[in-house]
């Protein structure tokens, strides 16, 4: 996801001046990546829509606090989205199921002789991503779903590019192991 930071900053300045059209352009620019990012983290379409709306509302409320300081507007949107997801899970008080339990559940319903439907694979992939540690989930979604560069991800997560690559590597290795066990690979 290559964004024209300067144009977006200009848009944000216009929003600050009360230009609604500028904000509509910002919505359109960030809607899909935000939707994908949130959807893959919470796996519910309706709740994703609500959270995306909440992200936009919070950005709009705090738009005056957005300072140039070499940070891209993308960071601003995604930081709010990340915080909202954390709040979401805190509210849900979801007890995270460990890897083994998920694998067992998948194994029990899985018949290798059966032709696995594409839908089922998608479901397994989503569950496997969801089962990764939070920072690995984030890196995988931002990199392979939102097509962000490692530099952008590093900026967003406040880590070095090297650290981001390490996280990607560990996440891919874990996914490989899970999918191998499920004989998907």
């Amino acid at each position: 996801m290559k964004e024209n930071t300067e144009n977006l900053k200009f848009l944000i300045e216009s929003v600050k001046k009360g230009d609604k059209n500028a904000f509509n352009i910002l919505y359109k620019t960030y809607f899909t990546p935000l939707f994908r990012y949130i959807y893959l983290r919470i796996n519910s379409k309706t709740e994703t829509e609500d959270l995306v709306q909440e992200v936009f509302l919070r950005v709009l409320k705090n738009i005056n606090k957005f300072e140039d300081r070499n940070k891209s507007p993308l960071n601003y949107f995604f930081t709010i989205a990340r915080n909202l997801i954390i709040d979401y899970w805190k509210k849900k008080k979801e007890i995270s199921i460990n890897n083994e339990e998920i694998l067992k559940a998948i194994h029990n319903n899985f018949n290798p002789h059966q032709i696995i439907q594409e839908k089922e694979i998608n479901e397994i992939i989503k569950k496997s991503i969801k089962n990764l540690p939070t920072d690995q989930q984030e890196v995988i979604i931002l990199k392979f779903i939102n097509d962000m560069t490692n530099k952008e991800i590093a900026n967003l997560m406040d880590r070095s590019e090297e650290a981001v690559r390490q996280l990607q590597c560990r996440a891919l290795k874990k996914l490989r192991q899970t999918l191998k066990e499920l004989k998907i690979l």
């Binding site: 939707f35 994703t48 995306v52 690979l185």
Partner: peptide, 26 residues
């Protein structure tokens, strides 16, 4: 293959969803 499987999860949200969000926020 894993990367391809992950990339296939790229869902494209409905445009109407965005329109609804914009109307609500405005």
């Amino acid at each position: 293959k894993i990367v391809e499987l992950i990339s296939s999860q790229k869902i494209t949200p409905d445009k109407k969803t965005l329109e609804n969000i914009i109307t609500t926020i405005n």
